[in-house]
Design a binder for these strands. Structure first.
Lengths: 233, 233
DNA sequence: CACTCACTTTGCGCGAGCGCAAATTCTCTG
DNA sequence: CAGAGAATTTGCGCTCGCGCAAAGTGAGTG
């Protein structure tokens, strides 16, 4: 087990408000793990033995229905906790987590959560704050799915990705990991065909530039207009 | 302030695992409040000064979009906590809560949450377990909205309501509070017209009996078939 | 460097379910 | 108990976006 570099980790949101020695105590029982691109970090319905903080990379969280249809629940970015079923009283993971690119994670045994969260209340508070915003985000998605057209939903999804993981380039803000039309479809409840058509149209209008597994938003402002205009019902 | 009857409250899920004297300490700073049918318990975006346990009645949790469209996030039943924004590090309520019928609630000042949850870990664990299942449920709804037809979604919604709040009658299991076609539409992302058509069809098939603000499921098994058959995509 | 496979684009037809409108029925209130 | 308003039902046309199909375009590999 490599010695973890506390100084790089100290600034991450889950550990905010922890003293230096507290952080070391928190990190002591953690292992650092690597996952290659497209490799599963955990599977849906598996025993939730570990919980994680993502140190580097991007992770896709996917739910699969009994009929085999996949839905992307969210993407995890650097510095976020995930797989925290144990903190929410679950014994299994409700979704799978897959490394979207090569990833480095910290992993703790779930059994340690009760002790860690009581010994280090700041850790618990930070984690539950994250849970709160995820619950709110999930409800936001329900509302979007209920009230918006596909075009609006796709625009919102892209804007969210850009905000979360955007990286500035010459042509605009690029989504920082490989993402297919199919992926965007699975985030928005559309088909890859419809997503492809929308992207083509937006490309023509100069709002996005995109290629194989790559999306760059060159005009976020006009994309926001697409996201907001024309409600239904 | 009336003296609270601890014996009636002891069995509720949020208080499971608390000793008798602990329960009394938890209840001490709580106030009991009454709300008439259709009166708001709190408004969306309001300061989250209180958190609640529902002692009697049913509460509708509603999000309103900037365009004024309403979506029913969930219904709260007896014995559930709600309005727990503070436990999730939020300062405002992300949705409104409205009494679906005359209600009795227990209310605590949000400021007490940190103290209560650390002094009584069981209370914290029970609450976060609830949060966990709500997060999962929200994701389930996202998946349903992404992959199912309106008919399946409405069937699922009714089955969920029946499981949560069903009350046996001569004709089947009745949803225990007034609920309109419009309400069901706002839970499923459909229009009241489509919901009405579905209910009429199902009534014809002998699956449900319904009237004004009233729904009884007489054949849950066949409704489950409606909920599961024919996936799309 | 060619081959293959995954990803993407585009066309076309169709159907689920919305939007609008109007009639009907039930409940509550004065 | 009559009137009014809320909730429900039903009809009809239309559109968004899916389903299916087929062609095109990279990118990685042996």
């Amino acid at each position: 087990m490599p010695k973890l570099d506390a100084s790089l980790i100290a600034g991450l949101p889950p550990f905010e408000g922890l003293e230096k020695d507290e952080l070391e105590q928190v990190l002591a029982p953690a292992r650092s793990l690597r996952f290659e691109r497209e490799k599963p970090i955990f599977e849906q319905e598996a025993e939730a033995h570990l919980f994680f903080v993502l140190l580097d990379g991007h992770v896709r969280v996917v739910r699969t229905t009994t009929e085999g249809q996949q839905v992307i629940v969210r993407y995890i970015s650097e510095g976020e906790v995930f797989g925290i079923a144990a903190a929410l009283g679950r014994t299994t993971y409700p979704a799978a987590a897959i490394a979207a690119v090569d990833c480095v994670v910290l992993a703790w045994p779930s059994a340690l959560w009760p002790e860690l969260s009581t010994r280090f209340p700041a850790l618990g508070a930070n984690t539950y704050r994250t849970v709160g915003s995820r619950l709110q985000e999930a409800h936001t998605r329900v509302v979007e799915m209920s009230t918006e057209q596909v075009e609006q939903r796709v625009a919102h999804a892209l804007l969210r990705l850009v905000r979360q993981t955007g990286r500035k380039t010459g042509e605009g803000i690029e989504i920082d990991f490989p993402i297919t039309r199919q992926d965007i479809a699975e985030m928005t409840g559309a088909t890859l065909h419809t997503v492809s058509r929308l992207m083509s149209a937006w490309e023509g209008e100069g709002i996005v530039t995109s290629g194989r597994k790559r999306v760059t938003v060159s005009d976020p402002h006009r994309l926001m207009l697409k996201a907001e205009s024309r409600e239904k019902r």
